[in-house]
C-alpha cells in the first residue's frame, strides 16, 4: 500500500515545494519542521526551479521487480539552481551519452504503478536540457 505516503508527498513530488527559512533563508527540500542551519521554526513555501545539472549518475542494469522492465536506465543526483540536490531518474537519453555536468530539465512523469490495478504514482524525472 503506497497510497497514504504517496498522497502526503504530492507537494514535493509534483510541484517541488521546499521550505525557505524565514530567519536565515536556508532552503530545505523536502521541507522540515526545524531549520538545520539556525533551528528556526518558521518557513515559507517556495517552488524549486526545474533546471539543474548532473552531479553524478549510474546506470541501473539489475533493478527491483517494479522497475525490472525498464532496465537499463540512468539514476543520478541533480543539483538544482538553488543548490538543492535531488535523486532522480534521467530519462529519454541515450545512456552512453550522459555526462556529469550536463544541464537537465525536470519533467512530470509516471514514477511507478501499484501493479495492474493499483494507483499510478507521478513525480519528477530529469531529461537532458
Amino acid at each position: 500500500m503506497i497510497t497514504a505516503r504517496y498522497h502526503r508527498e504530492i507537494p514535493q513530488r509534483y510541484r517541488l515545494e521546499a521550505g525557505k527559512c524565514s530567519t536565515c533563508q536556508h532552503v530545505a527540500f523536502p521541507p522540515r519542521p526545524v531549520c538545520p542551519k539556525c533551528k528556526g521554526r518558521s518557513f515559507e513555501t517556495v517552488r524549486l526551479s526545474e533546471e539543474g545539472k548532473i552531479v553524478t549518475f549510474t546506470i541501473v542494469r539489475v533493478a527491483s521487480e517494479k522497475f525490472s522492465k525498464q532496465t537499463p536506465y540512468a539514476v543520478g543526483i541533480v543539483e538544482l539552481q538553488e543548490g538543492i540536490r535531488i535523486t532522480t531518474q534521467i530519462v529519454d537519453a541515450e545512456l552512453d551519452k550522459i555526462e556529469v555536468g550536463q544541464r537537465v530539465k525536470l519533467v512530470f512523469r509516471r514514477v511507478q504503478e501499484d501493479g495492474r490495478a493499483g494507483i499510478l504514482c507521478y513525480g519528477y524525472k530529469a531529461i537532458i536540457a
Binding site: 525498464q70 531518474q89 509516471r110
Partner: peptide, 16 residues
C-alpha cells in the same frame, strides 16, 4: 510515448 508517459504527463507538460 516513453514507458513513463501517458495522457496525464503529456497534458501536464503541454499545460506548463
Amino acid at each position: 510515448p516513453g514507458q513513463d508517459e501517458d495522457t496525464i504527463t503529456i497534458a501536464v507538460e503541454a499545460a506548463r
